[in-house]
Amino acid sequence: MTKKEALFNYLLQLGDNALIQGHRLSEWCSKAPFLEEDLALTNMALDNIGRAQSFLKYAGDIEGIGRTDDDLAYKRGERQFYNHLIYELPIGDFAYTIAKQLIISVFEYFQYTELTQSKDSTITGIASKSLKEIKYHKLHATDWCMRLGKGTVESHQRLQEAFNALWMYTVELFEMYESDAILVKDGIAIDLNIVKMKWKEMIATILKEATIDIPTVDYMQTGSRRGIHTEHLGHLLAEMQYLQRAYPDATW
């Protein structure tokens, strides 16, 4: 793998995470528990789609064959997506979305804090802007974990079950591949081992305060960095890419 290929791959992963996360959050539109929360979830969806646009555009520039951000979002197949599995899981109930948001926002908080130190100035630019948004997402998820964890018996149970179901997708967030190794050496990509330690610590603190037990699971899922996804991604893409695929010669 060349350095250029590694960077392209790395940017796709960052862009795909944001794209898929934005897509899933947008599914909440008109379905949130009350109107104010509908606006909050849509705001976070918009943050993510904006971030996806920046990373996919840069990925297209690095690849250098003229693909745009839209080409990369709408014209790649399931095996060419590199988002982590947890991002593509369906939205579930509100507790499931909040648990997912907490796992992801704490991960991204440390990931993007590191990325603001990258030697690639385009990455640091996007990361600095994104970090502000991510901090807010983390605040939102943390507050809701407290409300649900300590709210009613039902909300506590739903939140606990959500974390139990999501836990097997957490280790994959910190897996490092060949492309990471190439870029970490040059100070472009980040060392996820550091992120992993900080993530574990912060999640443990938050869950403890929310009276949620840290789940124990026998098996951890993996695969996204090789383009091996859950069955959910195919459906998501079929929906997202429908117009672009059905009318390949049209521009909108």
Partner: peptide, 23 residues
């Protein structure tokens, strides 16, 4: 149509618009 908007730009605009309506 949010999940089927044909471009990232269209998706953002539509989301922001529907969000306004909620507001």
């Amino acid at each position: 149509w949010i999940t089927r908007a044909p471009s990232l730009r269209a998706k953002q605009i539509l989301l922001a618009k529907i969000q306004d309506e909620g507001g």
